[in-house]
């Protein structure tokens, strides 16, 4: 079985994780409705290296991985700081 190697928890079988989908930047609060719909529904559908959320069920921790969705190879585990700093603040 495929294993994911994440900070703190180490190598764990992928069956312990729940897929959280693509990381997408939320639009600002006053964004036009079209941008809100785009954020809510549209996704990067084509094969690529995708930044995505993975939830580790036993420990209740979220991780962000960069995974090639054609080869299923995890290319990078994104440090939490990098994710946190990317979230827009007011």
């Amino acid at each position: 079985m495929q294993q994911l190697d994440c900070p703190i928890i180490g190598r764990r079988p992928i069956s312990e994780f729940v897929y959280g989908g693509e990381v997408r930047r939320p639009p600002p609060g006053d964004a036009p409705l079209a941008d809100v719909a785009d954020h809510a529904f549209n996704r990067t559908g084509q094969p690529t290296v995708l930044r995505e959320w993975w939830f580790h069920r036993p420990t209740g921790r979220w991780f962000v991985l960069e995974r090639n969705t054609l080869s299923n190879v995890v290319e990078r585990v994104v440090p939490p700081q990098e994710v946190a700093y990317a979230i827009p603040t007011l």
Partner: peptide, 17 residues
């Protein structure tokens, strides 16, 4: 293969494979 084709047409969709 839809997202590969819609990308050629410059369209975004909610489709995930």
């Amino acid at each position: 293969s839809t997202p590969r084709i819609t990308e050629m047409a410059g369209l975004s969709t909610p489709i995930e494979i």
